[in-house]
């Protein structure tokens, strides 16, 4: 179970606003987050990963406090073991597909399985600049899974993937996430694409 109660100030197009979230994420659930642009969806994911700090609140994951503003507890990103799929992929230009995964894990069998899952096994020696948008996005997803996280945060993870590939990938991801009991939070501009997969939702105003 993940309990999140946070307040975070955000500078937006219309001046300063405050993101307030009070939500429980069930272990192993898939939650879709949607809402208008600039409502703080990406910032919320970054708060959970400790890539940005909220002003108030608590984040408790499986009984362990990751963040508590009052008690000044803030577990660093490196110790949270969250998988993060960035909206702009954030792939490393100097690394090949395989090197991205090797940077995250030394488990060779796991790397092989991930490459097959993302259908990138034939592109192992390619650097991101030689991959299509969809291939880059798949690599970003594989890299996020490489550390075997217990919590997977995905920011628009399927926006560049064609519909056929998306359906296949989502089906296989769904099996993998269940098998690994990963709790997943997905930000999407197109929440319908997650119908039938997401078990919970959170709407940002």
């Amino acid at each position: 179970m993940i309990n999140v109660t946070i307040e975070k100030k955000l500078k937006g197009y219309h001046g300063q606003q405050v993101i307030k979230v009070d939500h429980q994420f069930t272990a192993g659930s898939v939650t879709k987050i949607y809402g208008p642009s600039g409502s703080g969806k990406t910032t919320f994911l970054k708060v959970i990963a400790s890539l940005t700090k909220p002003e108030k609140g608590r984040i408790v994951v499986g009984g362990i406090t990751w963040f508590d503003a009052e008690q000044k507890i803030d577990v660093p990103t490196q110790k949270r073991n969250v998988g993060f799929v960035f909206q702009q992929y954030a792939l490393f230009p100097n690394m090949t597909v395989r090197q991205h995964l090797e940077y995250a894990t030394t488990d060779e069998l796991w790397i092989k399985r991930l490459l097959l899952l993302g259908k990138l096994d034939t592109l192992q020696t390619h650097k991101p600049e030689y991959l299509s948008g969809g291939q880059q996005q798949r690599l970003a997803i594989l890299r996020a899974l490489a550390t075997r996280p217990k919590l997977l945060l995905m920011d628009e993870p399927f926006s560049a993937i064609d519909p056929k590939m998306k359906a296949e990938l989502m089906a296989e991801l769904s099996v993998l996430l269940k098998e690994m009991e990963i709790t997943t939070i997905i930000v999407s501009h197109n929440p319908q694409e997650l119908d039938g997969w997401a078990t919970d939702e959170l709407v940002f105003e």
Partner: peptide, 25 residues
Amino acid sequence: ASLAEASYTLGKSQWQTFKSVLLPN
């Protein structure tokens, strides 16, 4: 900034990130 952030989410320290991700790029 997301390059370093992605590296941190993989459990890498600031020094490892500097050496393996930032400097080569």
